[in-house]
Amino acid sequence: MNQSAYAAAGLYAALNGLILLWLTMATALVRRKHMVLIGDGGVARLHRTMRGHANAIENIPIMLVLLGFAAALGAPAVAIHVLGCAFTFGRAVHAWHFTHERAAQWQRATGFGLSVLTITVAALGVLGHALALL
Results as ranks from 00 to 15, higher is better:
M1D: 13
M1Q: 11
N2H: 10
N2E: 15
Q3F: 13
S4D: 15
S4R: 10
A5Q: 05
A5L: 10
Y6A: 11
G10C: 07
L11M: 15
L11E: 07
Y12V: 02
Y12Q: 05
A13R: 01
A14Q: 02
A14L: 15
L15S: 10
N16R: 02
G17Q: 10
G17D: 09
L18E: 05
I19G: 01
W22F: 12
L23N: 07
L23W: 00
L23C: 09
T24N: 14
M25F: 07
A26Y: 00
A26M: 01
A28F: 09
A28Y: 06
L29N: 15
V30D: 03
H34L: 06
M35S: 15
V36A: 10
V36C: 09
V36E: 10
L37F: 14
I38M: 13
G39A: 10
G39K: 11
G42I: 08
V43L: 06
V43G: 09
V43Q: 12
A44C: 05
A44G: 08
A44T: 08
L46R: 11
H47F: 07
H47V: 01
T49H: 08
T49F: 02
R51S: 14
R51F: 05
H53S: 14
H53K: 12
N55E: 11
A56Q: 07
I57N: 12
N59G: 11
M63V: 06
L64N: 07
L64S: 05
L64K: 01
L64V: 11
V65S: 04
L66D: 03
L66S: 02
G68M: 05
A71E: 03
A71W: 01
A72T: 06
A72Y: 10
L73W: 06
L73Y: 10
G74M: 10
A75T: 03
A75D: 05
A77T: 05
A77Q: 04
V78E: 14
I80D: 04
H81G: 10
H81Y: 03
L83D: 09
L83T: 03
C85W: 04
A86Y: 03
A86W: 01
T88V: 12
F89K: 02
G90C: 06
G90K: 00
R91S: 08
R91K: 13
V93M: 13
A95Q: 02
W96D: 00
W96V: 04
W96K: 02
W96Q: 02
F98Y: 15
F98K: 01
F98G: 00
F98E: 01
T99L: 00
T99K: 00
T99I: 09
H100Q: 14
A104V: 01
A104E: 12
Q105E: 13
Q107P: 02
Q107S: 08
T110P: 08
G111E: 08
F112Q: 14
F112R: 11
G113L: 13
G113K: 05
L114Q: 07
L114H: 03
S115Y: 00
V116K: 07
L117S: 12
L117Q: 06
I119K: 01
V121S: 06
V121Q: 03
A122M: 06
A122Y: 00
A122E: 04
A122P: 06
L124T: 04
V126W: 04
L127E: 07
L127P: 00
L127F: 14
G128L: 12
G128Q: 13
G128D: 12
A130Y: 14
